[in-house]
Design a protein around this nucleic acid. Structure first.
Lengths: 232, 232
DNA sequence: TAGATACTTCGGCCCCCGCCGAACCATTGA
DNA sequence: TCAATGGTTCGGCGGGGGCCGAAGTATCTA
């Protein structure tokens, strides 16, 4: 019967140790990169790629390309539910907080970090939310934003170097970037980099050496409140 | 991690078409014989035996030997739940009914037959249900019943030979026997045999030669109504 | 434009596991 | 006691699929 075949196909997909390991990691509800999943499962990138493609094909996972990364997440709560009920059978409960995931234990990293060259984490989200809420930024296409006239003005007052940002013609200007701790898009691209630059230049934030973690200074905290209307 | 391995092992068990077919059939909540399951899955008995052993080992199934048959059923509602959630993912619902199985086509056999030396089929179930409903029989342990004082009286009036039944010390007195057409327990053991004996002696039922089929006579039908409060 | 990084595709190796034939036990019915 | 039936175990065959190295594509950085 078709229903039986469908059952066995889905179950067989979950039945491979490498794929199960990936699904297990994805049970945290977040999106992970292909390399992240490959490393976690202890297999090479090309093997993982095949596994991931098959699971996307079967609609167990959803993929989203972002720059040269590809983020994968569980396709639906139903998938998570099925996995959880299988784990329950094994006598062990689903452990959403997989211990490995180092960044999860690091609240500072979740709070603020660099993502390539722009800000991510709660601060990155706060800035992005503020800009959209105040009408400075509006969606343009599926993965971009554009700066509104008020946004131009706002950036000018802040000292964001829009000129240089616009010169990098080879680069997206205001791109949506999926924040992997907050699971929501924050601003990246040339504008995101320029904004981050401003934060560093004005002493609002400083990089911690040998880490992606960024520390928000006291003046940075005040600036977030006064300029962005955000308390973090 | 152990939880990941457990997930993949359980899922892999369900991921084989033959095993999935068996599990699918067992989703009706009933117990099925090994041959029944093998036939339904389209594989030979020996292949099925291996599959079944593995699933019992993994506690997906529970097995119960009965004579030369072996009945398998899902080990728990949790197993059914997990299977159902996987089927839900496949977008198709579970299909409980299966067509084949020869005895299913023989209504007389389903109605009344001997099971070793006691009554089975709808009549056997009707008698058992009547006894428990009227408080003559009550559960004792996982697979036995015991006769209550009112049950002693009732059997005495009916002419059931309890003395002889109790003498067979080597044998269970009132045992639960899984009825393979009704899929519910009916009464077996020495008491079940004694009751069946009464049916034959009083002309309520008669065996058909060369068959396990039992014919309920007109007086038997009346007796079922008057003594057991059952219409069949 | 060149080089690095993330990911995918391709090709071939190898092992796991599902399958059945044959033989072996256990229970039942005659 | 003997055949018939249901079930299991054993051994060997064969195919599917997981794995990686190598090479190819896309994207970002300089």
């Amino acid at each position: 019967m078709t229903t039986v075949n469908a059952l066995s196909e889905i179950a067989a997909l979950m039945g491979d140790p490498a794929r199960a390991s990936m699904l297990s990691l994805l049970m945290d509800g977040r999106a992970h990169t292909a390399s992240d999943l490959a490393h976690n499962a202890g297999i090479t990138a090309q093997t993982a790629s095949g596994h991931l493609a098959r699971m996307v094909e079967a609609e167990l996972l959803a993929a989203r390309a972002q720059g040269r990364n590809r983020f994968y997440r569980l396709a639906s709560p139903e998938v998570a539910h099925a996995i959880e009920s299988l784990m329950a059978l094994a006598g062990t409960r689903a452990t959403p907080a997989s211990k490995s995931a180092a960044w999860r234990r690091d609240p500072d990293l979740r709070f603020c970090r660099t993502c390539y060259d722009h800000l991510a984490g709660q601060v990155g989200i706060a800035v992005t939310d503020s800009l959209t809420r105040q009408g400075h930024l509006e969606p343009k296409g599926p993965r971009d934003w554009q700066l509104t006239p008020s946004g131009e003005l706002f950036c000018g007052k802040l000292g964001v170097d829009l000129g240089t940002a616009r010169q990098a013609s080879t680069r997206h200007f205001a791109r949506q970037c999926l924040d992997w701790s907050e699971r929501r898009p924050h601003i990246s691209g040339a504008l995101g980099a320029a904004i981050a630059d401003t934060f560093f230049k004005r002493g609002w934030a400083e990089r911690l050496r040998r880490s992606r973690t960024v520390r928000l200074t006291d003046s940075g905290r005040r600036a977030l409140g006064s300029h962005f209307g955000a308390t973090v």
